[in-house]
Amino acid sequence: MADVLFFEKPGCQGNQRQKTLLAAAGHTVHARSLKAEAWTAEGLLAFLGRLPVPEWFNRSAPAIKLGHIDPDALDVRQALSLLLENPLLIRRPLMQVGEERMVGFDAAAVDAWIGLRGVELPTGNIEACVHGTASHGSCGSAGHGEDHARVGNH
């Protein structure tokens, strides 16, 4: 069983489903607010550094969905500046176990990393935003179906 440091948007139902799945598999989840964390460029790069810059972003964030930010047009410096200024733009969850880190929540990748121990997955996309139409767009969960990356000391 692992102690998982889990950076989330508090109140995000998608992140809640992910934490519930981890706990059901026997892991201890230490949830932290992505927005309240005192992020540094170095701290973010420890999670994101192996991914291409566009994959650093939460594609469901309103500023991205509305076209105000184009992650495909940003270099590393520009991207880090935007993410540090507005952490809700960061793809989530960010998870850490020991020195290893993961971006996003792909059940197969999480299972291979720390094990989900045969826990039954909920119906639908475990990464997708889960909310009613009244609050659609407020969560901005990382439900964009991109590949997930794990980084760390192996």
Score class of each variant (00 low, 15 high):
Leu83Thr: 04
Glu120Ile: 12
His131Ile: 14
Val103Gly: 05
Asn15Tyr: 11
Ala25Glu: 14
Ala108Gly: 02
Asn125Ser: 08
Arg117Pro: 03
Gln78Lys: 03
Leu89Ala: 00
Gly98Cys: 09
Gly67Gln: 09
His30Gly: 01
Gly124Ser: 03
Leu88Phe: 11
Ala107Asp: 07
Cys139Gly: 02
Arg59Gln: 09
Asn58Ser: 09
Phe47Gln: 01
Arg92Trp: 10
Gly132Phe: 12
His148Ser: 09
Cys129Glu: 15
Val119Glu: 09
Asp106Lys: 07
Arg150Glu: 01
Ala38Arg: 04
Asn125Pro: 04
Asp106Met: 05
Ala79Tyr: 13
Ala36Gln: 11
Glu127Trp: 11
His30Glu: 14
Glu100Asp: 10
Pro54Val: 14
Lys9Tyr: 13
Lys19Tyr: 11
Leu83Lys: 00
Asp111Trp: 12
Ala73Thr: 12
Gly98Ile: 04
Pro52Arg: 02
Ile69Glu: 06
Ile64Val: 14
Cys12Ala: 08
Leu5Thr: 10
Gly115Gln: 09
Arg77Ser: 12
Asn86Met: 08
His27Glu: 12
Val119His: 05
Gln78Trp: 14
Gly124Arg: 00
Met1Ala: 07
Ala41Thr: 04
Ala38Lys: 03
Gly124Asn: 04
Ala109Thr: 10
Asn153Val: 13
Met102Trp: 10
Gly118Ala: 08
Gly14Asp: 11
Val119Thr: 07
Leu74Met: 08
Glu146Trp: 14
Phe6Ser: 00
Leu83Cys: 03
Val151Trp: 15
Pro54Arg: 01
Phe57Ile: 06
Arg101Met: 09
Ser141Trp: 06
Arg92Tyr: 12
Gly26Gln: 09
Thr28Asp: 10
Arg101Lys: 07
Val119Lys: 02
Phe7Asn: 00
Thr20Cys: 03
Arg92Thr: 11
Leu34Met: 08
Gly140Asp: 06
Asp72Phe: 15
Gly115Tyr: 15
Leu80Pro: 00
His27Arg: 04
Trp113Ala: 07
Ile90Trp: 07
Arg50Thr: 12
Ala25Asp: 10
Val4Asp: 05
Glu85Asn: 05
Arg59Asn: 03
Leu84Asn: 03
Ala63Ile: 12
Gly115Ser: 07
Glu8Ser: 05
Pro87Ala: 02
His148Trp: 13
Ala31Asn: 01
Cys139Trp: 04
Glu55Asp: 13
Glu100Trp: 15
Gly132Gln: 04
Arg101Val: 06
Gly104Ala: 08
Val97Cys: 06
Leu45Lys: 03
Arg50Trp: 14
Ala142Gly: 06
Ala23Phe: 12
Gly140Tyr: 06
Val130Pro: 00
Gly124Asp: 11
Leu21Gly: 01
His154Arg: 06
Leu22Tyr: 13
Trp39Ala: 02
Arg77Cys: 08
Leu82Phe: 09
Ala41Phe: 08
Cys12Trp: 12
Gln96Arg: 11
Leu84Tyr: 08
Gly145Lys: 01
Arg117Ser: 10
